[in-house]
């Protein structure tokens, strides 16, 4: 068990993790593929104090090296659920489970709305976890809607266990097996009655029983049922505390401006307050 888990490996998350380490707490940072981090893609940053004309990738690499030097542990993966239970939190990360005492959400900007038909068919053919549900679709037609950088890897795995996979994404997939047909489409719609019967991808309709929608991260309100939002952002107070005790949030997931300095500052406060929270538990 770690003292704290930080969900998200951007500037807010790493700043919170460093602060928790500075206060002697054990920290696990869980983040997706770094190619999905918007900072990684930023060509030039001129408004982060002390770093004139730096690329986002370079800044992120420095943040990560700093966190590593402070003893922050990292895990790559997608957090699927967080459940508070008896004063601790259980996190499911793909096929793994971690238990922590405090959580800092630094998941980045809230993602776009659900696709038509997605919510109604969640658990009835729509899945966010290939490793969880893939086995139930062996020998069946499935579509993978690939929005995260690691989605081609998951599609390959589904193919390997015997699913009949079609890959759908707005951008050309990187690393997809050549024997998986790929369709370029930004707009999709999940079709079916009680259960999934197909996916409309642009002008194509694919008959399928399963649709795996793989986004870079799961929306905070879905991660933690009952978490209060303000518009698309997590509601926090001056201490970066969210509506659930032991849960803090920092960075783009709490609101504008979507800037590195603001993320680092909020992360610092969230890490500090999370450490205080942990101390008063004892």
């Amino acid at each position: 068990m770690y003292d704290a888990a930080v969900i998200g490996g951007g500037p807010a998350g790493l700043s919170a993790a460093v602060q928790l380490r500075a206060r002697g707490k054990s920290v696990l940072v869980v983040s997706g593929d770094s190619r999905d981090n918007p900072l990684y893609k930023t060509q030039r940053i001129d408004n982060y104090l002390g770093f004139y004309n730096v690329t986002g990738g370079e800044l992120l690499e420095r943040f990560r090296a700093h966190a590593r030097q402070m003893g922050v542990e990292e895990k790559e993966g997608r957090v699927l659920n967080i459940m508070p239970m008896n004063g601790t939190f259980y996190l499911s990360i793909g096929s793994e489970l971690e238990q922590v005492r405090a959580v800092v959400l630094a998941t980045g900007v809230a993602r776009a709305a659900k696709y038509p038909g997605e919510g109604e068919h969640l658990g009835a053919g729509v899945s966010y976890c290939a490793t969880c549900d893939g086995m139930l679709y062996r020998g069946k037609e499935v579509a993978v809607v690939g929005l995260a950088a690691d989605a081609p890897r998951e599609a390959n795995w589904l193919k390997e266990i015997g699913c009949k996979v079609t890959y759908v994404s707005p951008n050309p997939p990187d690393g997809l097996r050549p024997d998986i047909p790929a369709i370029k489409a930004g707009k999709v719609e999940v079709l079916g009655g009680q259960t999934v019967e197909g996916l409309r991808a642009g002008s194509t309709t694919l008959p399928c029983e399963g649709v795996f929608i793989l986004r870079p991260s799961v929306a905070p309100a879905e991660l933690l049922p009952g978490l209060e939002l303000e518009g698309n952002y997590i509601r926090v107070d001056r201490n970066m505390a969210a509506s659930i005790p032991g849960v803090f949030a920092a960075g783009d997931c709490t609101g504008l401006p979507l800037q590195v300095s603001k993320a680092v500052g909020e992360g610092q406060v969230a890490g500090h307050r999370a450490a205080e929270y942990l101390e008063q538990l004892k």
Binding site: M85, Y90, S92, I93, T131, C132, D133
Partner: peptide, 14 residues
């Protein structure tokens, strides 16, 4: 449930 499913492991103590 199944052993390869993280959320299932989470539900197990419940």
């Amino acid at each position: 449930w199944a052993s390869w499913c993280g959320p299932c492991k989470m539900l197990s103590p419940v």
